[in-house]
Amino acid sequence: MSCLQTLSEYGLRSLGHGPRLLPRGDITLCDQIVLIGSGMIWNIYFAVLALTLGFFLATALALAKNSKNRLLRAPATGFIFVFRGSPLFIQFFLAYEAFVLLPRAGIEIDLLFVQITAETRWLTRAAAGALIVLFLNTSAYSAEIFYGALRSVPRGDLEAADAYGMSGFSRFRKIVWPTMMRLAWPSYTNEAIFLFHATTLVFFSGFPAWQQKGDALYYARYFADQTFNPFIPYPIAGAYFILFTLILIMIFGKINNHLNRHLAREQRIKMKLSTRFYRRNAVPSLR
């Protein structure tokens, strides 16, 4: 079987297209590259959606944690503590077990809610359930980063805003938020990288791979188990991740430049791995 043929057959295997059976017996290098690459679709899916959705929740949580109102501050602080203080791996397990229990509770409530219970099924699927966990998890980590940045917004900026008569939402949107983002961005980049890497945990933590539709590491492990040769599938998966991590750093770097565009060159927060960057954020927020 030629490599192009493999590509057309297994290229979208992780989404359920292609042969039901994964390659067995004579597994070629091409099989491994194609199938692991196909699995990357899921890693990217989880990373993009969790980060995008998480960004908004994180902003809200950071503001809540910084709030003077105890009713806002306490839940936000608690949420951040629980999700940052416990392993993502355990969170996945817990979430899956909890989601599995959901329909039972739903049926007991009322027969009128049958429609809703039918929908909770989706939560036990990795595509929805694991995404929710990743979303909440990255929200907590990012919220802590944003909160730190929020606390370091220069007082002068705020006073200037007051002097202009800005208040409430417009002060936040025009003054606080841009500065907060600018200060938080290098750390947030790190968080994004580690969230991306954490997506590899999904299929090892309770969420079953339906019809062997899994992520890059799921297939890499499949090949390692089948061939007893870890020296091919894992480096392939590693190479894919390096590639996409570099792309991610590039995109975040572009955004960083955009955030800093109004500053003089020397004042900019470099995305380079400068000393300052390391000291504060070497903090691989890997969970």
Binding site: P103, R104, T124
Partner: peptide, 18 residues
Amino acid sequence: LVEFPTPEDMVAAVRNGE
């Protein structure tokens, strides 16, 4: 077909209607 790694997971999937 939906495959599960352990029999326990398989039965749990029937129980919750997955």
